[in-house]
Design a protein around this nucleic acid. Sequence first.
DNA 1: CTTATATAGATGCAGCTGCATTTACACGAG
DNA 2: CTCGTGTAAATGCAGCTGCATCTATATAAG
Lengths: 149, 149
Amino acid sequence: METPDPFDIWLPLARAHKSILATVEAALKQAGLPGLDWYDMLWELERAGNEGLRPYELQQKLLLPQYGVSRLADRLAKAGYLIRQECSGDGRGQILLLTAAGAETRAQMWTVYSEAMQQAVTPHFSPGEARRLAELLAKFLRPSPADKI
Amino acid sequence: METPDPFDIWLPLARAHKSILATVEAALKQAGLPGLDWYDMLWELERAGNEGLRPYELQQKLLLPQYGVSRLADRLAKAGYLIRQECSGDGRGQILLLTAAGAETRAQMWTVYSEAMQQAVTPHFSPGEARRLAELLAKFLRPSPADKI
DNA sequence: CTTATATAGATGCAGCTGCATTTACACGAG
DNA sequence: CTCGTGTAAATGCAGCTGCATCTATATAAG
């Protein structure tokens, strides 16, 4: 059995990623909206609702380094999209809460984001291919079979 | 027929990209070697051989902005991995040539790079799945069917 | 030749990222 | 209570990126 070359996956994957990202970011910029990093944090905060989220929780969800979350939160706060609330029960921590302006902007971004994604991805695949590709890519999400404890 | 959701492709693709990239970059750093951006330019220059490459050619091959190539070339030159040669026939331009040190470093990087890629990708797929995934991802490389001239 | 326009590449500045460190609080051991 | 260790989050610094602009040469028009 021939061992498959991982670069046959990596190279086109990296290109596809770059291409899609460029398309979507360009569409957002064109619309005068913030980039995807802002979107991701706004979205997580919106999903968290009134409970808000601790920075370290965002860190896990967004796969960002600790200082990345800290500074992205700075920018969103400066833009008025979130507020930092003292954390009752842990004096070191804080709770990040989405503001109405943040929710508003996220909603605007979504219309552009989803439309651009549609254009960037859909034309390349038949529905069947798309479904199969999604299935295969999903296999990255779980730990690989080799990651035994 | 249900229209497939492009985010079923995009979200796992983005995660996979981030995960693989992190694995490989960590391995390179661990080995005290430069990052993948350096590798890509070194590799193109090595493929170009004695002819070398013009910066604008690298720009297309690497999908980098003009100033990105200019500055990356600065760093590689400072590290002694390439030299800038005057371009006979176009006084504005220059030719970038790989040095022996550059070729040496690229070779060292390759052993780490390919090994890390193997580890990051292969465990997730059977050979058949890997082949199919590579085929599907390759469909991004050509212009989509909708891009008629 | 002269001038207008286009192309190759560099660069100043502002903003972002990575790294290491720092500050502040939490928590368990003595 | 005090001390040592661990965790949450911020930050100074250096390096990188994007944007706009700039310089220098090429090329086409008159």
